[in-house]
């Protein structure tokens, strides 16, 4: 194997990491944790991943990747297929358009931005689900879910930042 080829393969593998992480978080969302009351309000890990990578490395997380990750999430958790796909593509676009606002600023700014995006995403998920089932749905679970998602964001963002650093420092 020539050095250039191995180097290129290495680069491809690195570039696939965000997408692979996305799929991993989809699978993580399906694990039964046996904690009373946790299931419906478990943090939306995929939303955090999409937001983070859209702000920092939009080129590695294309809208098509995000679309299929969302669709996979819908199918595996049994949600109406298409809801998370649409919402995640929306979140990616919004986060990418505001990327300049967040990059290089303090983490609090990023966290605050994520909070706004998460609650907007929750609102859209709630509305779409209600339209899908043609009935009014209690919004409490999604409010709690998004609150937990925002609360868990610093931890996940730290993991993403470390991954980002490790992968692309010398690339």
């Amino acid at each position: 194997m020539t050095p250039s080829l191995s180097h290129r393969l290495d680069a491809v593998a690195r570039n696939l990491v965000p997408a692979a992480l996305g799929v991993f978080f989809v699978l993580l969302s399906t694990i039964p944790f046996y904690i009373p009351g946790f299931g419906p309000v478990a943090p939306n890990f995929v939303l955090m991943a999409v937001f983070f990578w859209a702000v920092h490395r939009i080129d590695l997380f294309t809208s098509i990747t995000v679309f299929f990750i969302g669709l996979l999430l819908d199918i595996l958790v049994g949600a109406p297929p298409g809801i998370n796909a649409a919402v995640l593509v929306l979140v990616r676009t919004v986060a990418a358009s505001q990327g300049k606002v967040f990059r290089g600023k303090s983490f609090l700014v990023l966290w605050w931005g994520f909070g706004l995006v998460a609650f907007a995403a929750g609102l859209v998920i709630w509305i779409l689900t209600a339209i899908y089932h043609l009935t009014v749905i209690d919004p409490l679970p999604i409010i709690f879910q998004m609150a937990l998602t925002v609360a868990a964001f610093p931890f996940l963002a730290w993991i993403f930042a470390r991954t980002h650093q490790k992968l692309f420092q010398n690339a």
């Binding site: 399906t30 595996l76 949600a79 709630w126 679970p141």
Partner: peptide, 15 residues
């Protein structure tokens, strides 16, 4: 055996 829970706020199903 239950292998997956629904992680969604608006779904109650298991795999």
């Amino acid at each position: 055996r239950v292998i997956a829970d629904s992680g969604g706020a608006f779904v109650r199903s298991v795999v």
